[in-house]
Amino acid sequence: MFYLKVLEITSLYTILVLGVYLMTGLTGLFSLGQGAFVSIGAYTAAIAYMNFGAPFPLALALAVIIGAILGFLVGIPTLRLRRDYFLLVTFCLSEMVRAALLYLSQLTGGALGMAGMPKRVGLPLILGSIVVITFITYSLKRSRFGRDCIAIRDDELAASMMGINVYAHKIKVFMISSAITAYGGALYAFNILFIEPNLFNWLESAKLIIITFVGGLNSIAGVIIASTIYYSFGEFFRFIDVWRDVLLAVVVVLVIIFRPGGLLQGLELLPSKLRAMRRGR
């Protein structure tokens, strides 16, 4: 039971990390507001289900759609500007959403949060979601969309000279990322069964970014591994759990300075690559 619970929580967070991977890892967009999208997804699904009697699948779909729409609305004014503005405005967004959730207490329960959702999300659904999301992310990474992401990350001006609509592409990236993140939030609400406005503050958003860097910008496999280690760590090493974030921070600084490609240095763990490695290439 204990291991099951650990696996569930770790996998939930891995979905969030995958959401961030597309924009921060591949495209180089930093958002300190992804925690807000987790909250948006969680609250959208919970409110739709609890207050409006929406069936569970519809509640999940709504979370995804609202996440994407909000991503669009936030992206429009900010993604045309320098990257820092995007970072800072998403930071503002996370505070704004938190304040809004507290304020709209009739709908959200305010500081008391929401509870009483039925447990509709178990390990099979979470792991299934990871497989699907990884498949989608990887499909995107290995064709046009992913190439354009990396080109934009490396050199926006050169990318636009090659015919890439940088602004539109970033908006698409942000929408997809936000949709995935909101979906993760919805799963969270129906697995943990309790949500409150302070659950995903800027620090949680920051961790998602940081884990992406530890795993490596060019490696989905690395990111999944890093996320799994980090989020299951505390469960197995309770006695130093409180030091987990301090430890993470130290590890990150060291990785970035001495191994900037991340743990796996951009390697994807695919059957073909593994076979090639065994052959000693």
Partner: peptide
């Protein structure tokens, strides 16, 4: 400790941002 090594190696600015966020987290969590 955390910015100069990155600057020296000519890494992209994004690495500076990540390290600055990390330091903020480090201090807060410490």
């Amino acid at each position: 400790l955390v910015f100069r090594p990155i600057r020296r190696k000519g890494y992209p600015v994004s690495m500076l941002i990540v390290n600055s966020i990390t330091v903020a987290m480090l201090v807060q969590q410490f």
